[in-house]
Write a protein that binds this DNA or RNA. Sequence first.
DNA 1: AATGAATGAGCGTTCATTCAT
DNA 2: CATGAATGAACGCTCATTCAT
Lengths: 210, 210, 210, 210
Amino acid sequence: MEKREVHASVKDESLVNKRRNQMIKGAVTLFKQKGFHRTTTREIAKAAGFSIGTLYEYIRTKEDVLYLVCDSIYDQVRERLQKDLDTKQGTLESLKRGIANYFRVMDEMQDEVLVMYQEAKSLSKDALPYVLKKEIEMVGMFEDVINRCVENGELVLAKQQVQMIAHNIFVQGQMWGFRRWALQQIYSLEEYIELQTELLFKGITLNERG
Amino acid sequence: MEKREVHASVKDESLVNKRRNQMIKGAVTLFKQKGFHRTTTREIAKAAGFSIGTLYEYIRTKEDVLYLVCDSIYDQVRERLQKDLDTKQGTLESLKRGIANYFRVMDEMQDEVLVMYQEAKSLSKDALPYVLKKEIEMVGMFEDVINRCVENGELVLAKQQVQMIAHNIFVQGQMWGFRRWALQQIYSLEEYIELQTELLFKGITLNERG
Amino acid sequence: MEKREVHASVKDESLVNKRRNQMIKGAVTLFKQKGFHRTTTREIAKAAGFSIGTLYEYIRTKEDVLYLVCDSIYDQVRERLQKDLDTKQGTLESLKRGIANYFRVMDEMQDEVLVMYQEAKSLSKDALPYVLKKEIEMVGMFEDVINRCVENGELVLAKQQVQMIAHNIFVQGQMWGFRRWALQQIYSLEEYIELQTELLFKGITLNERG
Amino acid sequence: MEKREVHASVKDESLVNKRRNQMIKGAVTLFKQKGFHRTTTREIAKAAGFSIGTLYEYIRTKEDVLYLVCDSIYDQVRERLQKDLDTKQGTLESLKRGIANYFRVMDEMQDEVLVMYQEAKSLSKDALPYVLKKEIEMVGMFEDVINRCVENGELVLAKQQVQMIAHNIFVQGQMWGFRRWALQQIYSLEEYIELQTELLFKGITLNERG
DNA sequence: AATGAATGAGCGTTCATTCAT
DNA sequence: CATGAATGAACGCTCATTCAT
């Protein structure tokens, strides 16, 4: 189950990549504005800088564009996370920095992430597994970091707890973009990071014993 | 800004309610399967048990159906929450029970909630405020309960923290449905409730001091 | 070939007349504003002051309404002309007064006349003869008056000329309403009457010999 | 206020012209038979020899077809008039020949003219001015010719009279087509021309003094 | 490889007409 | 006699996709 292949009539692979990047860039802009369903293939072609005929030399169906877009966004997010998390040594401090970094990435890419999650449901049944796989991979990255803290003895957590925490962190990152109409009016990004980190680590009844 | 009125040609109000309930029921089923955009008005009419002409006696546009669906789901969720939360006296114990109850409601209504959140973005600009308002109301219900705990001295939290916690709880409830492909394979609902509650109250570094 | 009968389910003839007059009055107003095709039967019923169901107790199809409207307008026009022309003794002076009277009637009823002529073409093939018959009748009224002038020796005209003149007068009356966007900005009604009468009687080269 | 542009998706201008001519030809035939409102876009496309999708590559709305039809008919009529009237030197003889020519044009194009005048009222408020402008232009052509006769001293007429006469001539041309059910059963075209010309120039009471 | 004209299934919506009450 | 809820054929229009050039 490696990447799902999207068929292109054109053979020259570097041209295919070039054209698809044009296409994705145009499509993201459009999906951001009007969503996948309200965007026409003509608009995508135009935004990409070529004709509708050419568009169809590089994809087979409109849905392929959506898949390519989602795939590309995932890759960007993961790349930015990996760069940071890979070097983490498994200390609480590095976990905190990892979370902060993730939240910042989600802040910068909130439009893309929104697009991805709102439209991914329009992917056909056979594209879904590839998307879920990426999702699992990304949650897995947090799990790994947390697990290293457990191994190091910095944290004492059951496996189930580790997974739960990874999901929570992951969702709280998305939340920043999805609930921006509420959250971003109350908190700055840095306040959000600090508050969420504190709650995560200390919980709400710490003070009782503090 | 009370409820946005959806125009019906039919005058008999109880008939309007009856027909709209049929419509909403059918629409939810369809939206669940194929989403709002891929569902046709004819399918909605058929699922509701009447003709396309009759459908349009009770709404003005296809979007009205979506609004009616979202509105109805919100009302159901809120009603079930209110019944429980209203009687809370502001103790930690009652907050915990409130959270558990909310998670159970979200479990039972996960299909509806999924539909609502995935399709609400297709609402036109003038219906959106009404939906956001409900969202704020519901988060507000949790805020109130937490605030009562603060007033009672059971918790010591800043206003910003209260809001953050309310949002977190709210989102974790949705998460159960949205990420069911992952979460519901690892946890039972009761495990999920217990784990999330524990994490919320104790945080992940409690052990350090335990 | 007397009046074409429009079927009514209701038996009470005076009620039928009453309801149809309500209907015609409402319909003319609506047709004036939006034309026959853009007016719905529901609107007609509402303007008439009763329900759509009741409307259909007094007509069989929407086209019946149009026929009734045209018929009614013809009758009104003819009645007003007849009142005046019947008494004409066949003098040039009376012909002139007859023309002036006709133009004034066409001025007062210009909306109705416009509706009639613009929409009559929507009448089905079997209603057309009745309409043409009325048209012929009305032109015939002018023919009669002119013929009386010829009989009296006031005018010397061939039969073909008489018919031509009758048609010209008739059309010039309609013209006042149909070309109002041009004519009514240049002339007052009385100027129009005077100019047309003068041209009719004297022609444009009279002056050469005058 | 030059020609109102009708949007076409297709870029190739000569193709646009070709397709639109097909479209207009088909539409005139249909409008003649059943009027604008009773003609469907699919019928227009079919009559034009292409699919509904293609039709909409060359227009934006059904009304565009009507505008294109009216515009095209006007252009044809005007072109044929202009060819004749432009060379008129301002003599009575040339005015008579101009009228005769106009009546002959209206005879040949009576179907088109009928369509145009019966359906033009269905044009939206923003297309109407363009149509009225053409109407004024065409009446203006007769005014010019008559004015030249006045300047040459061949006729002695006030400005108001000139306008009236131009309108009368214009309407009598249309009359030949509109009232064909009556006129064309009494007169041949040439008789009609002769009779109308005579009446116009001599009036009905000339004989009294002749 | 690139183009863009052509296609037609399918959509949301309307509205004349019917008929049970 | 009057009502108005129900119907569904039919409409104007869109847009993903194809294919000749």
